[in-house]
């Protein structure tokens, strides 16, 4: 309710106050997004020049060229693997945090959030320092007399690095989900004769499922569209939707194809969201 006279200030003032934000969004969001959709139906020439012709060729080409169907399948598969790994790594931290109190909780929470404030470039760079041929892991292997491993510039490196990058999102989603988990429920389970392990599988895990699903949706969506980490840790050898969009847009200058791939990313988003909505209702 307005603080002044009722009805004295009509919607005109509201409209005036909303003009700047509308202008920015119109120029840099609505128009470009709509234009991108249109671009996926425009025929481009090999030189990168655009024609005025509309065509479905960009879309049908995706299905004709097995490179793109494989790209789609591998992007989704790798993102699912990353999501699963992120979940496995995040769950213990989230549960531990949920049970911690006071200063310990604050400090650990700051530690969880602080990577979010650190540039993805920096964290990916840190992974290069750990996984590269002269990196931490291979130095350890060498010190133990074991053979060196190729850990970087392949799918493995991308999966490890991205899982770590996405962990804070997963942990925060899980923590939100744990909100419903009253410690007394576990105590109740214990009084009924459940061992801690049984209490976890029968009480804690089922109650945390909504948080798990939300975290998985979030991480999957971020993994499918992530660019910096796959580009740097993949070293140009791991092909994913996001890196391909960038290459088509900047290197090959095939904007219609880049636009079509972008639409594919959005369709994958939509499907993931629909699947989540379905699962959340059950």
């Amino acid at each position: 309710m307005s603080a002044g006279a009722p009805g004295a200030r009509g919607p005109m003032l509201a409209v005036a106050l909303l003009i700047p934000i509308f202008a920015v969004n119109a120029l840099v969001f609505f128009w470009p997004t709509f234009n991108l959709f249109k671009m996926s139906f425009i025929r481009g020439e090999a030189t990168g020049a655009l024609t005025d012709e509309t065509t479905l060729a960009n879309w049908t080409g995706l299905f004709r060229d097995s490179f793109y169907s494989e790209l789609l399948v591998s992007s989704v598969t790798i993102s699912l693997v990353i999501t699963a790994l992120t979940l496995v790594l995040s769950y213990p931290i989230a549960l531990y945090l949920h049970r911690a109190r006071g200063l310990r909780r604050t400090v650990l929470l700051v530690l969880v959030i602080s990577p979010l404030l650190t540039s993805a470039v920096v964290r990916t760079y840190g992974w290069i320092a750990i996984l590269s041929d002269g990196g931490l892991v291979n130095s350890l292997l060498k010190a133990l007399g074991l053979p060196a491993q190729r850990l970087i510039f392949n799918t493995q490196g991308v999966v490890l690095g991205l899982a770590e990058i996405l962990m804070p999102y997963m942990i925060l989603a899980l923590l939100a989900g744990f909100g419903r988990l009253d410690a007394r429920l576990e105590e109740a389970a214990a009084t009924l004769g459940a061992r801690p392990r049984q209490a976890f599988w029968r009480v804690v895990l089922p109650l945390s499922l909504p948080g798990v699903m939300l975290g998985c949706l979030l991480c999957f969506v971020l993994a499918v569209s992530s660019f910096i980490t796959p580009k740097l840790l993949g070293g140009g050898r791991v092909f994913l939707l996001a890196t391909e969009i960038y290459d088509q847009a900047i290197v090959t200058l095939n904007w219609p194809l880049a636009a079509t791939l972008s639409m594919v990313v959005l369709i994958v988003f939509g499907l993931a969201l629909a699947l989540y909505a379905r699962a959340a209702r059950l």
């Binding site: 790594l89 931290i93 531990y96 911690a100 006071g102 990577p115 770590e164 962990m167």
Partner: peptide, 29 residues
Amino acid sequence: MDERPASPTLTILASLAFVFLLAPVVIVL
């Protein structure tokens, strides 16, 4: 609510996960 002691299993798993989470930022220094 009182802090409940985490089980040793959980403490170990959470510690390892924390090492994994923070390693790339820490190693930079």
